[in-house]
Amino acid sequence: MTWFLDHVQDVLDLAVQHVYLAGLPLVIGLLLALPLGWLARRYPGLYTPFTAGFGLLYTIPSLALFILLPGILGTRILDRSNVLVAMTVYTVALLVRTVADALGAVPDDVKQAATAMGFTRFRRFFAVELPLAVPVIAAGMRVAAVSNVSIVSVAAVIGIPQLGLLFTDGFARSFYDPIVVGLAACFVLALAFDLVILAVARLLTPWQRAGGAS
């Protein structure tokens, strides 16, 4: 406990890094998964290759990805963009199927009605399909957020600063205080992500809380 009180500022700095490395890929990953998920729905032949194919990316061990990416991207090993890219890959891996399924769950008669009223395909996507897909996409985002918060810590092994450093540091010194603080901080961060996603989803779906027929 005294260790934590002595290092509050350090832990906070690491937490900010952690939020950045886990959070930004979450947003970029969603923006990439939306068109990919849409394509998987639009062209039924793409559904299986897309969902299975992108899903497979998630099985690449994170350490391997952190180490391989510099070679592929031409970045330096200590560059934070390696971690950002890797986390984006994992987010996309989780969200392509989510987005495709969320869009697939939009009732057909609602889509038909939209088309019949003269929505262009593009406009229909943003005005009707996407809003109705929010609850399912939000559920997928919550899983991806927790996953990102946890995986990012592995980047400590290649020396990228974030909460994971507390683990390597504690391990190297056989000193448990940083490890416990790091675990607690990761937990709090994951919870915070979860709450933010929930809050945003609630804001976007007032219709979901309007009870049934009176």
């Binding site: 609602v110 009605a113 009223m117 003269g118």
Partner: peptide, 21 residues
């Protein structure tokens, strides 16, 4: 197509209303 459709009202069985509006 979109002009044609905007000039014709369309009503279906379960109304097909937009649940989020």
């Amino acid at each position: 197509e979109s002009d044609l459709r905007r000039g014709m009202g369309y009503v279906i069985q379960h109304a097909g209303l937009f649940p989020h509006r």
